[in-house]
């Protein structure tokens, strides 16, 4: 998992998450190779991007003869999923949430309340 292909997937996701828009493989390659000692080949990056599409992490849209790639969801969304996954295994997670709620800054607390109210009234939280 921590092998070469794993780190490449990581690097590609990093670039796509910090990019303001969907990127072509060429642009992706330029960012990845910027200042790199051993530049990556075009085909390598394309393969990694396609594999991430297969995993459902990024989506591609046709752009001329090539594709543009963009992450499907933000990094924060995945972080939330992971936190929930870890917490559901923890039988004391009510206490964690309480302590968290008690410690957020007042302006954050207002936002949190808003989000909870929206969620309680059945609308989608974005």
């Amino acid at each position: 998992m921590a092998g070469l292909s794993g780190s490449l997937e990581r690097a590609v996701m990093d670039v796509l998450w910090s990019a303001p828009r969907a990127l072509r493989v060429r642009e992706l390659l330029e960012t990845l190779n910027d200042g790199a000692r051993k530049p990556l080949a075009y085909n390598t990056v394309q393969t990694v991007a396609e594999r991430l599409v297969g995993k459902g992490m990024i989506e591609r849209t046709p752009d001329g003869l090539a594709f543009r790639y963009a992450p499907k969801r933000g990094r924060e969304d995945y972080a939330v999923d992971l936190m929930l996954g870890a917490l559901t295994e923890y039988d004391d997670h009510g206490a964690v949430l309480t302590r968290f709620a008690e410690s957020v800054a007042p302006e954050d607390a207002q936002q949190l309340l808003e989000a909870l109210r929206r969620r309680a009234s059945g609308k989608e939280v974005t």
């Binding site: 998992m1 921590a2 794993g6 997937e9 990581r10 996701m13 992490m57 990094r75 924060e76 995945y78 972080a79 939330v80 999923d81 992971l82 936190m83 996954g85 870890a86 917490l87 923890y90 964690v96 949430l97 302590r99 968290f100 957020v104 954050d108």
Partner: peptide, 30 residues
């Protein structure tokens, strides 16, 4: 699955060689 997702999402901690950092305000360690 959790592990491979972590691998893509979390950042490496510079100070501790065995730690991944997850960007989230909830205080959790596991």
């Amino acid at each position: 699955e959790h592990r491979s997702m972590l691998h893509l999402v979390a950042r490496e901690d510079r100070r501790n060689a065995d730690v991944l950092l997850l960007d989230h305000p909830l205080p959790v360690a596991y």
